[in-house]
């Protein structure tokens, strides 16, 4: 399904079976097609109910409640900003993404069975760069849910919803290319130019 099931049901990932059922019943009461008289509203309500049922089935079948909570917390405890909880080294995938080779990076990511916060973050970057904005946003949300403290994931989500994801990334790329050598050579040139007017920052040349 294309929407985040937890968001559709308006529950937190650690919710118990009882909480999930309560949320489901609440939504069924609100959006049941029989409550709407107009034909098109009925049609919309039917679609909404389909979405709610799919989300409910997904959450129940994917072992949330106690088991799901344990899985989530396991990943939270083990995740680091540089390495992943699954033990997979994502450096190569990051390089592929930086080079704009999104389909290759996506193929490698899809073969990884254990999906941790880093996996969702990188998949989010690929989805957004390929034009699937909603999927990208959902993946960032999942990454943040697994590792809420990670500043990189927080920034990516914030930049997406505020619409400056790419300009910030381009900004980072530009600053990366400004190496120490470039800064030193600029300073040296400036110093040479200013010597005539009395300024001499680097005295040896």
């Amino acid at each position: 399904m294309n929407k985040d099931p937890y968001k559709v049901l308006n529950i937190k990932p650690g919710a118990t079976k009882k909480e999930i059922k309560e949320a489901y019943n609440r939504l069924v009461k609100k959006y049941h097609p029989d409550y709407y008289k107009e034909k098109h509203m009925k049609e919309l309500a039917e679609q909404k109910m389909k979405e709610i049922n799919e989300a409910y089935d997904y959450v129940i079948n994917n072992g949330v409640s106690r088991q799901g909570y344990q899985e989530d917390s396991y990943q939270k405890n083990n995740s680091r900003s540089t390495s992943s909880s699954s033990g997979y080294d994502y450096t190569y995938i990051r390089r592929l993404i930086q080079a704009g080779r999104f389909s290759e990076a996506r193929n490698i990511l899809e073969d990884i069975s254990v999906r941790d916060a880093e996996w969702f973050y990188l998949m989010g970057v690929i989805e957004i760069s390929s034009g699937n904005y909603n999927q990208g946003r959902i993946n960032f949300e999942k990454a943040l849910r697994l590792d809420p403290e990670n500043s990189e994931y927080q920034a990516a989500y914030r930049q997406t919803v505020n619409g400056y994801f790419f300009s910030r990334r381009a900004g980072h790329a530009r600053t990366d290319t400004e190496t120490c050598c470039q800064v030193c050579s600029t300073l040296w040139c400036l110093d040479c130019c200013c010597e005539g007017s009395g300024g001499d920052f680097i005295t040896c040349c």
Partner: peptide, 13 residues
């Protein structure tokens, strides 16, 4: 509206 803002940003990039 975030979609439109992100699209503008993406196009400019």
């Amino acid at each position: 509206k975030w979609r439109l803002y992100l699209l503008l940003d993406h196009l400019e990039y």
